[in-house]
Amino acid sequence: MPSVVELSDGLQNGYVLQTRGLTYRLPAGATLVSDLTLSVGKGETLVLLGRSGSGKTTTLKLINRLLEPSEGEILVSGRSTASWDPIQLRRGIGYVIQDTGLFPHWTVEKNVALVPKLERWSSKRIRARVIEMLELVGLPPAEFARRRPSELSGGQKQRVGVARALAADPPILLMDEPFAALDPVTRAELQREFRSLATRLEKTIVFVTHDVREALLLGTRIALLDRGRLIGTYSPQEFLDSTEPHVRAFVASLQAVEGLDQMQ
């Protein structure tokens, strides 16, 4: 069973995260994800874009095995994750969700220290890492470490969520509409910071959103999903130029808001 370190070592070359023919069906029969084949390289941010119910979140949960695929497989560095211990796998994959899911009964410090603690780091190393992470996401540790989640704003909570996901230095980061619930100003601020963070940290990131503007801003590539199927994978420029009807619909929605010219 590979540890986080092994996982990290295996991510050196080529595409590091792949899905092959990934399919997920509910016991009742509905197919949420259908024959999805994707690959994400190191330092890349793949945005899964789609409307509600297009299978984006389900795909994320299949990657960290909160759900088990009905068919197909997920490969990390060319090796299928099916035989891995899901607990160990998840500790090597950072996970950020829209509702943050911070533990309300724990301080910010303890929340950020979650995975290092699960991995039994020394307390000295954990403390140093928490300080580093809080600084990384722009929350001065002296001010925030001892607070509880209820004493934070929405933006601050999501920063803690990101710090928590990055604390054990996982090679892969999954983000499920992390900024969707924030006010526009805070959202823009966090998006900007995330972008520079992603470039600096060289993680393999899968980012789910239904916001085409966010997808264009943050994604190195955009995978458009519709009713569980992959329509195509595009660079931001390819996405804007595409004549594919589903893509056109998204781009048109963007146009309606602020005008295509501005974006280009």
């Binding site: 960290n64 909160l66 607990i87 160990q88 796998l89 998840r90 500790r91 090597g92 996970y95 969700i97 829209q98 509702d99 943050t100 899911g101 911070l102 533990f103 309300p104 009964h105 979650l114 995975v115 699960l118 969520g161 928590r164 996901a165 999954l174």
Partner: peptide, 27 residues
């Protein structure tokens, strides 16, 4: 207990036992 908290705990790699004792029962 808030389902988002449970999802985060599982997604972070807590075992069911850790989830129970450290998250569900205290909350």
């Amino acid at each position: 207990v808030d389902p988002a908290v449970i999802e985060a705990a599982r997604g972070m790699g807590m075992t069911e036992r850790q989830l129970l004792w450290q998250v569900q029962l205290p909350l």
